[in-house]
Computed example of a mutant assay.
Amino acid sequence: MIESLQMMSNRAYILASKLSETRGIPQRYAEIIKKHFNITYMEEFLRNEEEFRNKIQVLFVWEYCPTVDEKLLKSLPLLKAVVNCGVGVDHLDLPLIFSFGVKVTNTPHVVDAATADIGMALMLASARNILEGHRIATKIDTKIYPIKWNGVEVTGATLGIIGMGRIGYKVAQRARGFDMKILYHNRNRRVEEEERLVGARYCAKIDSLLQESDFVMLVVNLTPQTHKLIGERELCLMKSTATLVNISRGAVIDQDALVQALQKGYIRAAALDVTDPEPLPRDHPLLHLPNITLTPHIGTATDQTNINMLERMIENALAATRGLPVPDEVLPS
């Protein structure tokens, strides 16, 4: 018992939002964290700030919580790292955090497969009208199935991938199994061997990709350069039979322009795992269009991926508290 208490006293303290299955650290994950750290939750911290302010060394940001603002940073003089789950850090004020001499980390690589999977799932669900098919099959008054409820072919179609990083490349690998023709647009062209392995053709300009693709999938980080990357002009360049799939961030699309494009038939459909904001207001027109498929930002929502992210967060936090090189440090741009 004494040894156990001594081990606990030697562990660094982390601050997390709360113990919660929805907007905090789930209990089963908290038990894993406790093997390495003492956890303080925000409510307890706010009640006893003087007790904890000189103990907390790491902020665990899980599902965008807690909010890391100037007031919180000033209250944590020993803070060494803000450890974020997932890849995107656009919800963090990086210049502000860096100004306090605090490191930021994310969890790249471990989310790649699950996010690529959701991209394929959305594309297939939209192409084959899965949601509408489910509605017809389960309606209480369904007597017969409609003779004609046609979707569009995925096999052999052209997929344009905007953002051919790790996740985009995994999407291409999966699309290769559907004999899809693959186009991609990226800041940097991949080496010829990587292109050959997935049968991908590089498009130096985004316009040609938009014009040729049956499906356009967005797999980019949200940056000032990609904010509203897809707007009215880009949507009008797409085929009227094309589908837009977004597994990156909602703000990469001009949503007002997307509503118009879907209503007026500029494109066939959209399939989105992300919106801006999340969730959308309940009266938002995107929620009520027949040619849209929406999921609630579940790209990384598998048990295994969540465990992998948590373990990587712990690795980053341990390195930061021990003064070691941090494996997934996000550097100032």
Results as ranks from 00 to 15, higher is better:
residue 310 L to W: 02
residue 79 L to A: 12
residue 247 I to D: 06
residue 14 I to K: 06
residue 242 A to E: 01
residue 169 Y to Q: 08
residue 111 V to E: 00
residue 27 Q to Y: 09
residue 125 A to T: 00
residue 212 E to K: 01
residue 1 M to E: 14
residue 253 I to Q: 08
residue 294 L to V: 09
residue 153 E to Y: 15
residue 260 Q to S: 15
residue 30 A to P: 14
residue 263 Q to D: 08
residue 262 L to D: 02
residue 323 G to C: 06
residue 302 T to P: 07
residue 17 S to H: 15
residue 78 L to K: 11
residue 4 S to G: 11
residue 197 L to H: 11
residue 261 A to Q: 05
residue 323 G to N: 08
residue 80 K to Y: 08
residue 96 L to V: 04
residue 253 I to N: 08
residue 119 G to D: 06
residue 115 T to F: 12
residue 1 M to R: 05
residue 57 Q to V: 02
residue 2 I to A: 12
residue 317 A to K: 00
residue 73 L to S: 12
residue 141 D to P: 10
residue 182 I to R: 00
residue 323 G to M: 11
residue 286 L to M: 11
residue 12 A to Y: 03
residue 19 L to H: 12
residue 286 L to W: 10
residue 292 I to F: 04
residue 170 K to D: 14
residue 76 L to I: 10
residue 182 I to V: 08
residue 134 H to V: 11
residue 64 Y to K: 09
residue 31 E to Q: 12
residue 51 E to R: 13
residue 39 I to T: 01
residue 314 I to K: 04
residue 42 M to W: 11
residue 100 F to H: 14
residue 172 A to D: 00
residue 294 L to R: 03
residue 236 C to N: 14
residue 110 V to D: 04
residue 173 Q to P: 07
residue 39 I to K: 03
residue 119 G to I: 00
residue 141 D to L: 07
residue 86 G to S: 08
residue 247 I to M: 00
residue 114 A to H: 01
residue 141 D to I: 11
residue 39 I to C: 07
residue 253 I to Y: 05
residue 231 G to D: 09
residue 206 I to K: 13
residue 243 T to F: 02
residue 69 D to F: 13
residue 181 K to S: 05
residue 88 G to F: 10
residue 102 V to K: 04
residue 5 L to N: 10
residue 276 D to L: 04
residue 199 G to C: 11
residue 249 R to S: 01
residue 188 N to W: 04
residue 307 I to S: 09
residue 267 I to W: 02
residue 290 P to R: 06
residue 325 P to S: 13
residue 84 N to Q: 13
residue 130 I to S: 06
residue 58 V to P: 03
residue 65 C to I: 01
residue 143 K to P: 02
residue 32 I to V: 15
residue 251 A to P: 12
residue 318 L to D: 05
residue 172 A to M: 04
residue 211 Q to I: 10
residue 318 L to V: 10
residue 115 T to L: 13
residue 177 G to A: 05
residue 162 I to F: 04
residue 201 R to T: 14
residue 279 P to C: 02
residue 147 I to S: 15
residue 262 L to T: 02
residue 103 K to G: 07
residue 190 R to F: 05
residue 132 E to D: 08
residue 317 A to Y: 03
residue 9 S to W: 02
residue 158 T to M: 01
residue 303 D to T: 13
residue 163 G to M: 11
residue 114 A to Q: 07
residue 231 G to E: 09
residue 60 F to Y: 08
residue 82 V to P: 00
residue 62 W to G: 04
residue 99 S to N: 03
residue 30 A to Y: 10
residue 8 M to Q: 15
residue 237 L to P: 04
residue 30 A to H: 02
residue 105 T to M: 07
residue 59 L to M: 15
residue 25 I to E: 06
residue 95 P to H: 08
residue 194 E to L: 14
residue 233 R to M: 07
residue 83 V to P: 03
residue 200 A to K: 06
residue 202 Y to C: 14
residue 73 L to Q: 10
residue 230 I to V: 15
residue 325 P to T: 08
residue 246 N to V: 06
residue 288 H to P: 09
residue 40 T to I: 15
residue 241 T to K: 07
residue 99 S to I: 12
residue 244 L to F: 10
residue 133 G to H: 12
residue 66 P to M: 04
residue 71 K to C: 11
residue 103 K to E: 14
residue 257 A to P: 01
residue 48 N to S: 15
residue 171 V to F: 06
residue 281 P to E: 09
residue 333 S to C: 09
residue 227 H to Y: 11
residue 245 V to D: 01
residue 4 S to T: 13
residue 147 I to F: 14
residue 51 E to S: 09
residue 312 R to M: 15
residue 333 S to F: 07
residue 330 V to D: 05
